[in-house]
Every structure is written in C-alpha cells, then in structure tokens.
Design a protein around this nucleic acid. Sequence first.
DNA 1: GCAATAGTGTCTCTTAGACAGTATGCG
DNA 2: CGCATACTGTCTAAGAGACACTATTGC
Lengths: 236, 236
Amino acid sequence: MSEKEFLENYDIHEFDVPLCTVDMAVFSLIENQLNVLLVYRDEHPCKERWALPGGFIDLNKDKSPEAAAHRKLKEKTGLGSAYLEQVETIGSPKRDARGWSLTVLYYALVDITRVTLPKVGKKTVWMPLSELKPRSLAFDHGKLIDVAMKRLRSKATYTALPIELMPAEFTLTELQHLFEMILARDLQAKAFRNRVMSANMVEETGGSKISGKRPAKLYRSTKVDRDTYFSRPLQS
Amino acid sequence: MSEKEFLENYDIHEFDVPLCTVDMAVFSLIENQLNVLLVYRDEHPCKERWALPGGFIDLNKDKSPEAAAHRKLKEKTGLGSAYLEQVETIGSPKRDARGWSLTVLYYALVDITRVTLPKVGKKTVWMPLSELKPRSLAFDHGKLIDVAMKRLRSKATYTALPIELMPAEFTLTELQHLFEMILARDLQAKAFRNRVMSANMVEETGGSKISGKRPAKLYRSTKVDRDTYFSRPLQS
DNA sequence: GCAATAGTGTCTCTTAGACAGTATGCG
DNA sequence: CGCATACTGTCTAAGAGACACTATTGC
C-alpha cells in the first residue's frame, strides 16, 4: 500500500483522542497589584464559574498552538502582540468532565494601559492574585495559574521579563516593587538598579514623576531581547 | 439544561481535533558520545524512516502525558524510572500527513548500562548525535531532537542534570568531558570540580580507575534533587 | 627520567547583598 | 527644619575563569 492510499483510508476517528485545548494566564499590573484575566463561563461544563481564557484549537484558523494562543489573547485584550510563552502541557482523564483532556498552558504579560477588554461577548474581569480563590475556578485553572506564576517567578530571578508588565514610562522604584511582588521578597535598591542599568534594559525618558517627596526619574524599556539572561540569578 | 444532561448529549467528535501524540528524545552516553534512541517505522506515514519513540496517548492506559512518556520509555529501554522532562508542545497542520498534529515533546536521560533494548517488536537503535542526519528522520523529529538538545544544553549551564547519563561509578574527568560535549566548549577543571564538589552532587566510592596514567578517583552521584540550581550559571 | 593524565593553589574579576550615607522634594 | 522617598558609596562574600603548579602512575 502506498502512502497515498494509506492516507486516503486513514480514519482520524479510529482511536479515541483527548480533548485538546489552549489556556492562557494573562498577567497585568493594576494599581501595584498583579492581576490575572478571567472569563465567565455561561456554558457547561463548569457553567457559571470563572476560567482562564482559552479553548479548543481551531484547525482551520490556527497554524500552531502559539497561533491559537495569540488569537485568544487578541480576542480578549485587543492586543496583537505581547510577551507570550508556553509553560507546560497538562492532561488527565479527570480535569474535564467531558473526557480525557489535554491543555497547552501559556502565560502572557501585558501592559494594562494598552488593553481594551471586549465590550461584547463573554464577561471578562481582571482578578488581583491576592484576592484569587484558586479552588473556585473552573476545571484545574487555579492550579494552572499557580504553575504559570511559578514560571514567572523563576524567570524574574534571571531575566528582566517582568518589565513587559510596565506602562510606557515608569520609575525604577516601581519596577523594583514589581519584582519584589513577583519574588515575594525584598530586594536591595542598589543591587537592583545596578543590575537593570548595566544590562541596558531601560533608558531615561528625561521626565520625572512626583509621588509626594523627591521626584523619581522616569524610564522606558529598551527593545532588548527578552531571552537575554543576567550572568547571575537573584537568590530565591 | 443541567450539566449531567449536557454531558450525556456531548459529542466529542462534533469538532475536528488535532492528532495528539507524545514523543521522546532519549539520550544516553556511549563510548564518550551522546546518543539518541531511534525507532524504525515500518508503517505509513513516513514508512521506512527512523523516528523518535512516541505515539498516541492511550486514553485507557495513560493518566497524563507524563505517564504516556514513561510507558513508552519503559517499552523501549526497559527502564521503569529515569530522568524525564517535558520540553515543549509543538503543533502544526503540516507536520504529519494525516492532518493537524500536536506532539508533547519530552527528553529522557538514561544510564546506558541499565538499558535493555527490546528483543522483539520494532527495530530500535542508538544513534550518535555526531552522525545524525536530522533531515532524514520521520516527521519533524530532527527539529525535535534539536529543541530537546537545546534544553539539555541550557540545563547543563545551571544544574548538574547531565550526571543522570553517567553509569554508577565515574571519574570527575569523565563527567567534565560530558559537560564539555553538551556545552560544546572546554571547561576549567578547577572551576568544574569546585562546582560539583561544593554542591555535594557526588561522593567518592573509594575506588579508582586506571586509564593508563595516574588513576582517577571514582565517584557516584548522590541522590540530590535534580532541580537544585547552582548559584551561578556557566557561561554560554 | 619522561610522558600523560589527575588534581590543586592562588590570583583576578564580576556581581549580589548589606547597609550607611547623601539628595531632593514637600509641608 | 523634619520627614519621606530617591538614589549612591563602599565594603564583603561567593564563585567562575585563568593558568601555573604539583601528584601519581606506566614505561
């Protein structure tokens, strides 16, 4: 039998296959708090619970799982581009009541000032991580957020990735606070600034920001490769 | 409609789903060379070409993609346990002639002295990476090996993971050679030994090995968590 | 002794961490 | 001025990199 004949006779439904989805933890920084985007489910299963944005790969629209994730990010935030990284693929017979289910988990870091939540369609909401009740979410999405958060935390120790969460202009103190929140520990201002400055990841805008006391210089992030690692990681 | 009713009426085949597989790059060290395990395909598609071990997730047998990977590793190497890590999930409409296909890629590090290749069933072979012709492999498996190898290289800069490839007893010079091969650069003996010793990743067995000249002390790996990172990565 | 491989002493350099000190604004 | 926040000077510690040096074997 030739390959051509084989393919003509191949029945893609001969064997049971898992349900196959893409899910995303979209993180943003709102009022000095890390938030994650949630979508309200008004269909079964897990009807009337909050879930991560995501869903089935559309075999007609999507050329790759990344493409599916980008499409969903665009639908929910209006962002055509943002930092997006695959975290892990998680599957089990139990995680979805419909059957054996596999999800490719991504996380995205977005600048909240550039986001426009959809006016129509499903309800979407920014949930502060500090107020999140992981057990209340649909499926195993509480656990997925935890996995994504662990990855972000790990990355924050050896890259400047969290800078993607900042608005166009920001102060180094604000950036340090963000890292401290992600790493859940205090950082030394001097060491942090040396690190960020010597990596040329930011440049002065010339402006400054007064928050009551001494004004802080404003910076913007330079377009440096996000995958360039610091030569030494932070502790923890 | 209740969730129960919804599930009773849910047709898992209502939408097209991707083909969903697990593939593994199993690495071993044979005669000071990195090898990868290949399996001969005697069925379409990609008939009569070499491929990574892998295949469809068995919804009845496998409780997770990891479980599927472990099952396939056991089938091909006889090993019930080995270091196994998920690398990335790769999918596209083109990578498999049968249709939109998604594969969860793992890599495994095995001690070749503990492996027993199956006597019956599909032909399996250890292919030295130096002799591998990536384009000749089935599907995109040449690229998958490259992705897995990049991950292994990255890990070798900040963990002692490659130690999993060594036999029960080995010399530090042999271990250093392994790291040099993976990283494709020479390492300083002093720095390498300091690093390995101070992390308590190995302990002396008491024995020594003569390879012609001065005998080298033999070590065994201690059961340290493979995910403990060195406080500083190696360059490159 | 010589060759070859195993293993060490010691120096430099970079950078995180610590912490006290200075700078600049407002009331 | 006092106080709060922004930012710096300077020291220490750890560990990688470099490289010359010593150690132990067979012949």
